[in-house]
């Protein structure tokens, strides 16, 4: 089990599943999923989503297709957890306060099983697990290196007084079957006079159909283990103390 912090920085955790194009899909599926989840996610809403598709038309054309589709969203009573069902998409979002992986995983399993029992899934095009962390440090003048091992580096004669930044990289895992997109940027502080940052870790299946349906939840567990390792590697002991205060 990973480390637990008294003040965990997680503001949003997301687990998402994109099913393969040959899987069965129609507009009745969100309703079928809702019937299976309505005890835990009783509040349903509907949003319009803009979907952009890029199609390559050899040899010289690239076509952008923009269309609007509906997405069903099922909220828990406290609106801290919700399930989104879109066109061949299932996502489970958990907002702060994030209590534990075991609790989030239970919700993921529950939603994924409801999804699987509502349509015929041929394969998973993509699976993703994402943790967005908001780190707020008191004080206007801080040194990033005191808190982050993953940060922008401005060498040589470059000015050091940056006011905004975004840095990202992709880290391969499991022989590049999976990728972890790591991103850090400055963010809007919750309180005036503080500095704040978003540390965004997105671990996803890079090879469509590489994970059979019956191994999906094992993949999610592995993704969580890898994300946790990368997160711990991104931060310094000083930041750990800031989150304090490990409970276990």
């Amino acid at each position: 089990m990973g480390k637990k912090y008294a003040n965990p920085p997680i503001v949003e955790a997301i687990c998402e599943f994109y099913i393969s194009p040959d899987s069965k899909w129609d507009i009745t599926i969100p309703g079928l999923v809702f019937e299976k989840l309505r005890n835990e996610f009783p509040n349903k809403e509907q949003r319009i989503v803009q979907e952009v598709e890029m199609q390559r038309q050899p040899p010289n054309n690239m076509q952008q297709i923009i269309r609007l589709d509906e997405r069903a969203i099922f909220f828990s009573d406290d609106r801290k957890t919700f399930v989104q069902i879109g066109n061949r998409l299932l996502s489970i979002n958990h907002l702060k306060p994030y209590t534990s992986w075991s609790e989030f995983k239970t919700k993921i399993e529950c939603a994924f099983n409801a999804f699987c029992n509502s349509t015929e899934i041929k394969g998973l095009q993509r699976i993703g697990l994402r943790y967005i962390n908001h780190v707020e440090i008191i004080g206007k003048q801080i040194k990033l290196e005191d808190y982050f091992n993953f940060r922008p580096f401005l060498g040589g004669e470059l000015p050091k007084n940056i006011i905004s930044f975004i840095v990202g990289c992709l880290i391969p895992s499991s022989d590049s079957r999976d990728l972890c997109k790591l991103e850090i940027s400055d963010a809007m502080p919750n309180k005036e006079g503080n500095k704040s940052f978003l540390l965004d870790l997105y671990y996803y299946l890079n090879q469509p159909l590489a994970i059979p349906i019956n191994e999906v939840l094992d993949w999610v567990e592995l993704a969580h283990q890898n994300i946790e390792k990368i997160f711990e590697a991104c931060i310094t002991d000083q930041l750990r103390e800031y989150f304090n205060k490990e409970i276990e």
Binding site: V49, Q50, Q55, L68, R71
Partner: peptide, 9 residues
């Protein structure tokens, strides 16, 4: 070939 992404409106 096609690739999709989504934007929530």
């Amino acid at each position: 070939m096609s690739t999709k992404y989504f934007e929530l409106l």
